[in-house]
Amino acid sequence: MNLNSETTLVEAAQNGHLESFGALYERYHSSMVALAYSMLADRDMAEDAAQEVFAIACRDLRSLKSKERFAAWLVGICRNVSRQMLRANKSRGVAPDNDFTVVRRDDMEGRREAIRKAVWSLREPERELIVMRYFDGFSQGQISEVLDISSQAVNGRLVRAKRKIAEYLKRNGFTGGDYENA
């Protein structure tokens, strides 16, 4: 990421330059959708959340003091918006519901459902990384920049998270061979 370029964009946007805000939007929209999706487990809701994130960012951008922290600021807004949506939904969890048996080993949708369950049973920091990595193919470097954590930490967490997913799938009777043969 060209930090100078980004701080210039942020500064220009703070001064009312719409195209600069547009460039920031294009740069971060997809990652905000992915981040919201990791919390909400619903793509349409995640898209709505991301839209709200940029509406808030647009409205409050001038209050951002550290221009170089734009991404972290945006991530904070995104987590808050998503949590707000979840709080309004206290009576139900975000993870795909477990009260209906959906895992059917001989069915592609059953396999997908099992993977979804495995992902949403992860802790939030791991789930965020997994979803960002696979939602839109973010590189570890990109994830590191957006979430403001080191590349090594991203890598370590991804490996641990994938191991947990694999273990979950194994417990539920799935193996790599099953998947490849599907």
Binding site: S30, A50, R112, I115, F135, G137, K162, Y179, E180
Partner: peptide, 28 residues
Amino acid sequence: MKTPENDKWLDDALAETIGSKKPQTGFE
């Protein structure tokens, strides 16, 4: 089961399950 960190099947499975298929809202 192969280890997840050095095998492709889990990557493929996750990309297929989580991957974004629909176009996202553009700035305009």
